[in-house]
Design a protein around this nucleic acid. Structure first.
Length: 270
DNA sequence: AAAACTACCTGAGTGC
DNA sequence: TGCACTCAGGTAGTTT
């Protein structure tokens, strides 16, 4: 999926087109997503989108009547286009706006979700056990050290755990660990506070840089205007198995950690 | 409590 | 050209 930078890119791209606009109609072409698209989503019709927020990898659309929550799963995207543009396969939910444009939720693998609540969004099950946002001061070395204490599992799995910190997926976990010089398989609880500080800064740095590049497009991700993100060019290890390390020329290795492909440099990371 | 594994789904790529 | 197979950005839920 879209990890945090891709969701943030989508959020920023949607705001000029959607914030302050009214949703005049809504058509669900495929309700069978990660959870069924709820009936209550109809309440959105006639409402003005006051603003769009991001929490973790969730997009939150604010109206006076309630909140729509969208997660892009592994292959989802939200695009703005003219109503005349023909629908594509996997355009599952179409939102008609009072500008005459449409916002289309597209998701081949259907791991994403579209949800609605008339209560407080924070009370929804998606937000119950989430850790801090990585780009805020709530996420720091002291916090991470406390969380890591006693953990014997791989640090890579650890930083990808949403109860620890949100928004770090497989790409940016690999990239941040490379930048921090930490081997992805090292036990989380056995990393010094000094190195955790470096890791925290590496996570913030890579996520921030990726947002500036409009995210990483491997296959599916596109911004609201259909353009790809350009951070792929800056990847140091992800997807580079057998290629030369950009720092030391050693060939990049791939292994499986927590069922996920993991890329690292044996010389730069220990 | 934490770690390990499962399930959800389509499409692209590879090897035969 | 077709078939069988592997792999892919996430995460909630279940089992060990």
């Amino acid at each position: 999926m879209p990890e945090l930078p891709e969701v943030e890119t989508t959020c920023r791209g949607l705001i000029p087109h959607v914030a302050g606009r009214q949703v005049t109609d809504l058509v669900v072409h495929q309700a069978s997503l990660r959870i069924p698209v709820p009936e209550g989503l109809d309440e959105l019709v006639g409402q003005q989108i006051e603003s769009i927020h991001r929490r973790a990898k969730y997009l939150i659309f604010e109206t006076k009547k309630g909140w729509m929550v969208i997660h892009l799963g592994m292959s989802g995207s939200l695009r703005i286009c003219d109503a005349a543009v023909s629908l594509r396969k996997h355009d599952h939910v179409v939102f008609e706006l009072d500008t005459g444009q449409q916002m289309r939720y597209h998701d081949p693998r259907r791991f994403g979700l579209v949800d609605w609540t008339s209560g407080a969004w924070q009370e929804m099950r998606w937000f119950k056990d989430l850790g801090p946002e990585p780009l805020t001061d709530d996420f720091g070395a002291a916090y991470l050290e406390e969380k890591a204490r006693g953990r014997k599992g791989a640090v890579k799995t650890f930083i990808m755990t949403n109860q620890v910190v949100v928004g770090v997926g497989n790409i940016y976990a690999c990239e941040a660990l490379f930048m921090a010089g930490i081997h992805p398989n090292r036990a989380a609880g056995k990393i010094s506070r000094k190195r955790l500080r470096v890791l925290v800064e590496a996570i913030k740095d890579r996520l921030t840089a990726a947002i500036l590049s409009g995210g990483t497009t491997l296959r599916d991700f596109v911004r609201e205007d259909g353009q790809p993100g350009y951070f792929k060019q800056e990847l140091m290890v992800y997807g580079r198995e057998g290629e030369a390390c950009r720092k030391c020329k050693t060939l990049i290795k791939r292994c499986i950690i927590g069922q996920r492909s993991t890329f690292y440099c044996v010389k730069c990371q220990c």
